Amino acid sequence: MGPLIPNGLIPHEWDNLIAILIGLVFGFVLEASGFSSSRKLAGVFYGYDFAVLKVFFTAAVVALIGIYYMDYLGYVDVTQMYVHPTYLWGAIVGGIIMGLGFVAGGFCPGTSLCAVAIGKIDAVVYVIGIMIGVFIFSELFFLFQPLYEGSFLGNITLVDTFDINPYWFIFIFTIIAVISFFISDIIRKRTKKIFY
């Protein structure tokens, strides 16, 4: 049955409308969860608040289990799902830049827009910085292109990379999530005295 758009169950013309609706709901959930607060977001790096880690890890585990369970029941065909292409060095360098920006500003691109929507000045400055970075990257793309398009690995997943049964991967990923939650609680309790 699924994915819905590639199989013609939802017309292709609905792509953008569905994306906007999902984005609105996602932004609402971010704000309702307190993720428009740079203090809360940066807390994961300083060890006093692991809500971001827990929420996104939980979302990843639920989505992973849900997709493969739906595939098992025949409602979704995992082989038809889009996998973004991997450019190894571009991903590594981009991840480092985004990580530094996350620590320095306390936002990621999505949460910064959520914070702008409710009028936070620090988020406005952060988004202006993102726009300047996007402008510089686009104008000097010819310099960055070898890095951006280098080390192309194709449309691979971790299951492909490690050549592991997807159900074993789900089990291992879930165990890693549970261990991460346990360790993050220990760290939070130790740093609580410092920050509160």
Score class of each variant (00 low, 15 high):
residue 51 A to W: 08
residue 53 L to F: 08
residue 53 L to R: 00
residue 53 L to I: 13
residue 53 L to Q: 02
residue 54 K to Y: 02
residue 55 V to P: 00
residue 55 V to F: 11
residue 55 V to T: 09
residue 56 F to P: 03
residue 56 F to M: 01
residue 57 F to S: 14
residue 57 F to R: 00
residue 57 F to I: 12
residue 58 T to P: 04
residue 58 T to S: 12
residue 59 A to E: 11
residue 60 A to G: 05
residue 60 A to M: 06
residue 60 A to T: 09
residue 61 V to M: 15
residue 61 V to W: 08
residue 61 V to Q: 09
residue 61 V to H: 00
residue 62 V to K: 01
residue 64 L to I: 07
residue 64 L to W: 10
residue 67 I to S: 12
residue 68 Y to Q: 12
residue 69 Y to G: 08
residue 69 Y to N: 10
residue 69 Y to K: 14
residue 69 Y to S: 14
residue 71 D to N: 14
residue 71 D to G: 05
residue 72 Y to D: 13
residue 72 Y to F: 13
residue 72 Y to V: 08
residue 73 L to D: 07
residue 74 G to F: 00
residue 74 G to A: 04
residue 74 G to Q: 09
residue 74 G to S: 01
residue 76 V to Q: 14
residue 78 V to Q: 08
residue 80 Q to F: 06
residue 80 Q to A: 06
residue 81 M to R: 02
residue 82 Y to K: 06
residue 82 Y to L: 01
residue 82 Y to S: 07
residue 83 V to K: 11
residue 83 V to R: 13
residue 84 H to S: 15
residue 84 H to N: 13
residue 85 P to D: 11
residue 85 P to R: 06
residue 86 T to P: 05
residue 86 T to E: 06
residue 87 Y to P: 11
residue 87 Y to M: 08
residue 87 Y to V: 05
residue 88 L to Y: 04
residue 88 L to Q: 07
residue 88 L to G: 11
residue 88 L to S: 08
residue 88 L to C: 05
residue 88 L to D: 06
residue 89 W to T: 06
residue 90 G to F: 08
residue 90 G to I: 05
residue 90 G to E: 12
residue 91 A to Y: 03
residue 92 I to N: 04
residue 92 I to C: 10
residue 94 G to W: 04
residue 96 I to K: 07
residue 96 I to S: 00
residue 96 I to W: 02
residue 96 I to V: 14
residue 98 M to V: 14
residue 98 M to E: 10
residue 98 M to H: 09
residue 99 G to H: 06
residue 99 G to V: 09
residue 99 G to K: 02
residue 101 G to C: 11
residue 101 G to M: 15
residue 102 F to G: 07
residue 102 F to S: 07
residue 103 V to F: 12
residue 104 A to Y: 10
residue 104 A to K: 15
residue 105 G to I: 04
residue 106 G to T: 04
residue 107 F to K: 01
residue 107 F to L: 01
residue 108 C to Q: 00
residue 108 C to F: 05
residue 108 C to N: 01
residue 109 P to A: 05
residue 110 G to N: 03
residue 111 T to W: 14
residue 112 S to K: 03
residue 112 S to Y: 00
residue 113 L to S: 12
residue 114 C to F: 00
residue 114 C to Y: 00
residue 114 C to N: 05
residue 114 C to I: 15
residue 115 A to R: 02
residue 115 A to K: 03
residue 116 V to G: 03
residue 116 V to R: 03
residue 117 A to K: 10
residue 117 A to T: 14
residue 117 A to R: 04
residue 117 A to D: 10
residue 117 A to C: 06
residue 118 I to V: 15
residue 119 G to S: 07
residue 119 G to E: 12
residue 120 K to R: 13
residue 120 K to A: 03
residue 121 I to S: 02
residue 121 I to R: 05
residue 122 D to P: 06
residue 123 A to L: 02
residue 124 V to Y: 14
residue 124 V to H: 15
residue 125 V to K: 15
residue 127 V to R: 01
residue 127 V to T: 09
residue 128 I to A: 15
residue 128 I to K: 11
residue 129 G to K: 02
residue 129 G to Q: 09
residue 129 G to P: 04
residue 129 G to S: 10
residue 130 I to G: 03
residue 130 I to S: 11
residue 131 M to A: 13
residue 131 M to E: 08
residue 132 I to R: 04
residue 133 G to Y: 07
residue 134 V to M: 15
residue 134 V to W: 04
